[in-house]
Design a protein around this nucleic acid. Structure first.
Length: 471
RNA sequence: GGCGACGUACCCAAGUGGUUAAGGGGGAGGUCUGCAAAACCUCUAUGCGUGGGUCCGAAUCCCACCGUCGCCUCCA
C-alpha cells in the first residue's frame, strides 16, 4: 500500500516515489501579500497542509516550503496608495496571513521564503537562461523568456501555444517583446517602483521567476511535489516549468498537485468576482476556527467545494459531534474490564482511513471512517462497555487520526475561566441538591457565555460552542 | 473559438462494472433523561441530468443531447 497522487502533468493518479526514499520535498505557492487572504486561498493552503500532515502520519519525512510573494504589481500599487513602502505593506499582510494560518491550524512550513530575500537566486536563473538562449532583453532592459525556444511549452495546461488567443486577452503589454506570448522574467526599473541593482540590470523579478528560484533554492533543481490552485496551472506553473528546466536542464517537479476552486454562489471565490470571504471576518462572527477548517478540507481537493452559510453550519455541527465524543471520553468513568471489541474497531477505522487517504487524499471517505468510529465509540459509551483505560485508548486513537485532520479540541487549550468554573461548581451543587430551577438557570447563564453544559451518568460535562447559533 | 472538469437524496458530498448507493448536515418518529442537551435506534435516492448503446450485469464504459463550472488574463 502506498500513497498515490494525481499529477496534473500526467493527468493520472500515480504512486508517490520520492526522489530521496522516505523524504518528500514539497513546494506550495503561497500568498501574494497585498491584502488579506480569503478562505478560497486557504482552501489551497489547507489542502497542502493536509497533504503534509498525511505524509508525515504515514511516516515520511517532509520538507515543506511555501513562498511569500512580497513584491509584485498589486503590492506596489497598494503601497503607493497608502504612501508607504512595499515592505511595510507586505509585513502587515504577512502577519495577517500567519495569524490566520495558525488559527486554522495550518502546519507551519519548514521554510517561508520571501521573494525579496532571493533576488540573487533569481538573477542567477535569468543569467543561465540568457546564456542558453532561452531569454532575451528588450530595449527598456526588461528580460523575457522566449517560448519559441521551449518546445514542450503548454504541456502542463494542455494548451497549444499556437492556438492561444493572442491579441484578445494577452493583448497589448506595457513592455515590448518579440512574441506576445513570451512572459517576463525581469522587469526593468521604472520611476516610482522598487528595483534592485543587479548583474542583469536594474529592475525587479517577474512573478513566475520568484517561485522557480525559491523552490529550487530550498529543494534542489528537481523535487517531488508542487502544489497550488488550479488557476495557477496556466500561466504560472507552465512558466515555472519552462524557465526552470530551460535553465537547469533537469526535470523540475515530479508531481503537480492542483486544488480546485472554492465556490461561492456558484462561482469561484475570487476578489475579481467580488464574492470573497475573509478568514478573520468569518471568525469575527463567532464561527469556530475548527469548523471553518472542516468546511475547507472536507471535500476532495480536486473537486469544486461549495462554501455557504449552510456548508459552514454543517461543518460546525460535524465538529460539535467530535467535540461531544471527546468530552464524553474525557469524562468517562469505567470500572469494568476492557472492551474486547475495541481494538478491532480502532484498527479498522485506522486502516480504512489510510486506504482512503492513500488514494489521492480521499478525505471524504477518510472522514466517513472517522465518523463510523465516532458512532461505534458512542455506542460503547452508551453501553458502558469501556474500561477507563479503554476510554483513554479511544481518545488516543482519535487524536492519532487527528494529526492529519487537525479538527479536535486542543488538549492544551485553556481550562475553563475561573468565574465560569464557579458557575459550573454551583450548578453541580444545585443538581445534587435537586434544585432544578437553580440548575437550569446556571446552565442558561453558562450557555450565554458560550459554554454548553450537558448532564450524563458521569456527571456534568461542558464544551465550548462552535458557532454563535449554538450559544 | 480551443482545452478540461462536473451533474448522486432537502443541502454538502463519497462511490469509476457485480450482494442492502459511504459519511456529514437537515427533517420525521422513538429510547434514555428531573428538564434540556448529547448519545443511540428507525425512517428520509428501487435510484445516481436526459435519451440511446455495450455487457450476464452500469451511477460507474461508449455516443448524443441538456445544464453547470473552470482554464485560455491578475488570481490559491
Amino acid at each position: 500500500m502506498s500513497v498515490r497522487l494525481h499529477d496534473t502533468l500526467a493527468g493520472a493518479v500515480q504512486p508517490l516515489e520520492p526522489l530521496e526514499p522516505g523524504h518528500v520535498r514539497i513546494y506550495s505557492c503561497g500568498p501574494t501579500v497585498y491584502g488579506p487572504a480569503h478562505v478560497g486561498n486557504f482552501r489551497s493552503f489547507l489542502f497542502a497542509d493536509v497533504l503534509v500532515r498525511y505524509l508525515r502520519w504515514r511516516g515520511l519525512r517532509v520538507t515543506w516550503v511555501m513562498n511569500l510573494t512580497d513584491v509584485d504589481d498589486k503590492i506596489i500599487r497598494g503601497a503607493a496608495a497608502e504612501s508607504i513602502g512595499i515592505d511595510a505593506l507586505a509585513e502587515r499582510h504577512i502577519a495577517g496571513f500567519l495569524a490566520d494560518a495558525a488559527t486554522l491550524r495550518m502546519t507551519m512550513p519548514d521554510v517561508l521564503p520571501r521573494a525579496t530575500a532571493h533576488i540573487p537566486q533569481m538573477v542567477a536563473l535569468v543569467e543561465a537562461l540568457l546564456e542558453r538562449g532561452h531569454a532575451y532583453r528588450t530595449e527598456d532592459g526588461s528580460i523575457f523568456f522566449r517560448i519559441a525556444s521551449w518546445p514542450t511549452y503548454g504541456r502542463l495546461a494542455r494548451l497549444d501555444p499556437d492556438a492561444m488567443r493572442v491579441g484578445e486577452r494577452v493583448a497589448a503589454d506595457e513592455y515590448s517583446k518579440d512574441d506576445a506570448r513570451d512572459f517576463v522574467l525581469w522587469k526593468a526599473a521604472k520611476p516610482g517602483e522598487p528595483s534592485w541593482e543587479t548583474a542583469i540590470g536594474s529592475g525587479r523579478p517577474g512573478w513566475h521567476l520568484e517561485c522557480s528560484a525559491m523552490s529550487m533554492a530550498y529543494l534542489g533543481e528537481s523535487f517531488d511535489i508542487h502544489t497550488g490552485g488550479v488557476d495557477l496551472i496556466f500561466p504560472h506553473h507552465e512558466d515555472e516549468i519552462a524557465q526552470s528546466e530551460a535553465a537547469t536542464g533537469a526535470p523540475f517537479v515530479r508531481t503537480w498537485l492542483h486544488c480546485a476552486h472554492l465556490q461561492m454562489g456558484g462561482r469561484k471565490m475570487a476578489k475579481s468576482e467580488g464574492n470573497i470571504a475573509g478568514v478573520s471576518d468569518l471568525l469575527a462572527t463567532g464561527l469556530a476556527p475548527r469548523a471553518l477548517r472542516y468546511a475547507l478540507i472536507a471535500a476532495h481537493y480536486r473537486t469544486g467545494l461549495s462554501f455557504s452559510d449552510e456548508s459552514v453550519s454543517a461543518a460546525a455541527a460535524a465538529v460539535a459531534r467530535l467535540d461531544a465524543l471527546v468530552a464524553a471520553l474525557l469524562g468517562y468513568h469505567g470500572e469494568g474490564p476492557d472492551d474486547p471489541g475495541l481494538p478491532a474497531a480502532i484498527a479498522g477505522a485506522r486502516a480504512a482511513f489510510g486506504v482512503a487517504m492513500d488514494d489521492d487524499l480521499g478525505i471524504s471517505a477518510a472522514l466517513a471512517a472517522v465518523f463510523d468510529l465516532v458512532r461505534d465509540l458512542n455506542r460503547r459509551i452508551a453501553a458502558r462497555s469501556l474500561s477507563g483505560a479503554d476510554a483513554a485508548r479511544a481518545l488516543d486513537a482519535l487524536r492519532d487520526l487527528d494529526r492529519v485532520l487537525g479538527l479536535l479540541p486542543d488538549p492544551a487549550e485553556p481550562p475553563l475561566e475561573a468565574d465560569l468554573q464557579v458557575l459550573l461548581d454551583e450548578r453541580a451543587a444545585a443538581r445534587s441538591a435537586r434544585d432544578w430551577a437553580a440548575s437550569d438557570h446556571l446552565r442558561d447563564a453558562l450557555a450565554a457565555r458560550g459554554i454548553l453544559v450537558e448532564d450524563s451518568r458521569d456527571g456534568q460535562r461542558w464544551r465550548r460552542a462552535g458557532t454563535p447559533a449554538d450559544a
